[in-house]
């Protein structure tokens, strides 16, 4: 079952990241972060971009180190799981760099 955990690691990381960043979005809007100034501009966008980039870095780490030593199909499914998670995080959360936060 460790193999199954390896397959699911990427998608689970996406799930955590998606919920976390969506939660951060709601929290930021609720606490009025877009009007709080930081050296990088309003607080909300950099906070979300930082969370996204951190998540992508974790995905990269999974792709690099999360591998299975079983048969070819097992290894393929672990690789696929890693990439499913990474692509999902990249695509579904890219709006953090593309649009306004609470508008």
């Amino acid at each position: 079952m460790i193999w199954m955990a390896r397959v699911l690691a990427g998608p689970i990381l996406w799930g955590a990241l998606f919920s976390g960043i969506y939660g951060l979005h709601g929290l930021g809007c609720g606490l009025d972060w877009p009007t709080r100034d930081t050296p990088l501009g309003a607080l909300h966008p950099p906070a979300m971009i930082a969370a996204w980039l951190l998540g992508l870095a974790l995905h990269a780490a999974l792709i690099r180190w999360n591998r299975a030593s079983g048969d070819a199909r097992q290894a393929m499914l672990v690789r696929a799981g890693n990439w499913i998670g990474a692509v999902a995080s990249a695509v579904t959360l890219f709006p953090v760099i593309a649009t306004s936060t609470c508008g």
Partner: peptide, 19 residues
């Protein structure tokens, strides 16, 4: 719902067509 949240779910809804 704010634009950014809409964009998250719009992107995910399009991506699910791939699998």
């Amino acid at each position: 719902i704010p634009h950014m949240a809409l964009a998250f779910f719009s992107a995910a809804s399009a991506l699910v067509a791939v699998p």
